[in-house]
Amino acid sequence: MLRLTCPCCGAAADETELAPGGEAHLLRQGPGSSDDAFEAYLFQRKNPYGVHFERWRHAHGCGKWFHAARDTRTLEVFGTYSAQVSAPPQDILDRIAEKHPGFSSEGGQ
């Protein structure tokens, strides 16, 4: 069972209170982008066996979107953070680095 603490209201929310929003920190590709970049933006997602950054919405709670960093292999949650950022904050990256030395979130698609 996955439990994430919503950074907007502070409640420890069970997975069944949340709506998943898929991979986080996607860079929008719109008019002017190449076909390949647009296709990747629309359809291609990371599916890592390990550290993953995700979007979640506290659907049955305060209703707000937020980000979560967790390990899909161990289900360890490294932390949750504001939806209004385009990259994970340093304290989350530090926590990930403790468990996964040399981890880089720059992997891209």
């Binding site: 409640a11 069970d14 209170e17 659907a59 049955h60 709670g61 305060c62």
Partner: peptide, 9 residues
């Protein structure tokens, strides 16, 4: 607390 009661908010 807002939450879920069985299937409804």
């Amino acid at each position: 607390r807002r939450t879920r009661l069985a299937q409804v908010p």
